[in-house]
């Protein structure tokens, strides 16, 4: 490829990348160049008891998160509860705990396998 054509292609791609980066500083959609590490999260500290055929045992919900992760929001908690019930591991799960978010701390309850805020 001729040097000036190559240079023009490289400049265009670089300019495109810079525009894409600038978008990352605006409210426009897209998440690839938006680096929200450690910015916002909802944490849930919860103790659960699962019941199967009348027998109760503690349920460690953190066992079901991605390795190393412990950030758990109420909808992720509900997805794990649904999975544990649908897979037949428990008939019902109950418990209580605390939810920590940008709004501070709130109690959270799990009643008959449903998350109640």
């Amino acid at each position: 490829m001729h040097v000036s054509v190559l240079s023009a292609v490289q400049m265009t791609v670089t300019l495109g990348l810079v525009v894409w980066m600038i978008i990352g500083f605006t409210p426009l959609p897209g998440h690839w160049l938006r680096w929200r590490m450690f910015c916002r999260a909802t944490f849930t500290i919860v103790t659960l008891i699962g019941t199967k055929d009348g027998r109760a045992e503690p349920v460690n919900v953190y066992d079901h998160l991605s390795p190393g992760s412990f950030i758990l929001n109420p909808s992720a908690l509900q997805r794990i509860l649904d999975h544990l019930i649908e897979s037949g591991r428990y008939d019902r799960i109950d418990g209580h705990g605390r939810m920590l978010s940008a709004d501070g701390e709130k109690p959270v309850e799990v009643r008959e396998s449903r998350v109640v805020l």
Binding site: M21, F25, L33, R36, M37, F38, C39, R40, A41, S101
Partner: peptide, 12 residues
């Protein structure tokens, strides 16, 4: 961008 996102997050 990470600094910008952190600046915009009151939680952080």
């Amino acid at each position: 961008n990470s600094a910008w996102q952190k600046l915009r997050s009151s939680q952080f």
